[in-house]
Design a protein around this nucleic acid. Sequence first.
DNA 1: ATGGTAGCCGCGCTA
Length: 259
Amino acid sequence: MKIAAWNVNSLKVRLPQLLEWLEASKPDLVCLQETKLEDHNFPRQEIESSGYQVAFSGQKTYNGVALLARETPTDIVCGNPHFPDEQKRLIAATVGGIRVVCAYVPNGQAVGSDKYAYKLAWLDALAPWLGEQLASNPQLVLAGDFNIAPEDRDVHNPVAWADQILCSAPERAAFQRLLGLGMKDSFRLFEQPEKSFSWWDYRMLGFQKNQGLRIDHILLSEPLAARCTAAAIDREMRKRERPSDHAPVTATLDGKCPP
DNA sequence: ATGGTAGCCGCGCTA
C-alpha cells in the first residue's frame, strides 16, 4: 500500500499533472493540500475516472484539502472539532481500516506575527484531537504540508534559517509533540540522501540550487510504522514546467495487517 | 540589497 502527500498549489492548475502522476505512481491513498477550490468546482469526475474515490473540503483562493483513495473513504470529518476554523485545512477519513488525517498546517508567515500565533494555536489543538483519533483507531496516518522543518538536516541553510518561520523552536516542539503521541516520521525510518527536501521557493532558482526545506511529512502510528518498507520524495514533478513548489512525498506499507 | 515567483482575484494577499 502506497500513501502520498502533495501540496499541489491549485488543483485547477495542477490537475493534468496530478492525473499523470496518479497513473505513473499508482498510490493507494493521496492527501492533497492547497487545492484552492470551492467544493462545487472540485474535479470529481476527472479523478474518479482515474480510479480514485474522493473526499474534499475546500474554499476559494486559499487552503483546501482532499483525500483520494482506491477504496471508499468513510467516517469523513472536516476540521478539528476542538478548533473552530474558517480555513479549510483538515480532513480525515477511514480507508481500508486505516484512519487518515490530511493536514495543511498554517504557514505562519513570520515568527511573532498574528499568523504565527494562529499556527501555534492550530498545532496545539491538533495534538489532543490526534490523540483521540489514535485511541479510536491505532492504525493512524497524519500526512500533509506541516510547514515545519523538524531538524537542521531538513534545511538547506540551517544558519540562515535559524529561528525563522518553518524552523523555530516552538514549531519544532509542536512537531515533536505529535511524535510524542507515538507517531513516526516515515521518511526517517530509512537511510536517506543528504539534503533531501520537499519544498523549494519559486524565487531565486530555489529548486535548481536545491535550496529547499523538508516540510511535507507522512507520520505513521507504530503499528503502521512497523509495516513501512520505504519512504521517499518524488522530485520529478518539481522538474516539470509550471510545477507546484512542493514535491509529492510517499510511504509504502507492506500488505500484511497487524494482529 | 528586504529583491525574487506563482496563484488567486482584481490592482493586494498569501505562500
